[in-house]
């Protein structure tokens, strides 16, 4: 316990440390918007073609895949 270092000094000196407050919201927002955008486009395609939700399902999967990819690129890396 005594050997434990004190937490780093409040950021600002070493690096412009962005705290993780916004990251969770960003991640969830990406997932939701990916799903909603491409799901909605898929729904439109469904109406146009006349199917019963197949394209909306595909759209949701594709959109959420895009959302995950965006999170990996923007928050991961």
């Amino acid at each position: 316990m005594a050997a434990q270092k004190p937490p780093n000094a409040p950021s600002g000196d070493d690096e412009p440390a962005p705290p993780d407050t916004g990251m969770g919201m960003t991640a969830v927002a990406y997932l939701f918007s990916g799903m909603l955008v491409w799901g909605a486009i898929g729904l439109l395609v469904d109406h146009w073609v006349g199917t019963k939700g197949i394209f909306a399902g595909i759209g949701a999967v594709v959109g959420i895949g895009g959302g995950v990819y965006l999170i990996v690129r923007r928050l991961g890396a």
Binding site: A27, L31, G67, V68, I71, V72, L75
Partner: peptide
């Protein structure tokens, strides 16, 4: 966040 995204998806 990567793991969270993949699972939450």
């Amino acid at each position: 966040w990567i793991g969270f995204a993949v699972i939450e998806a």
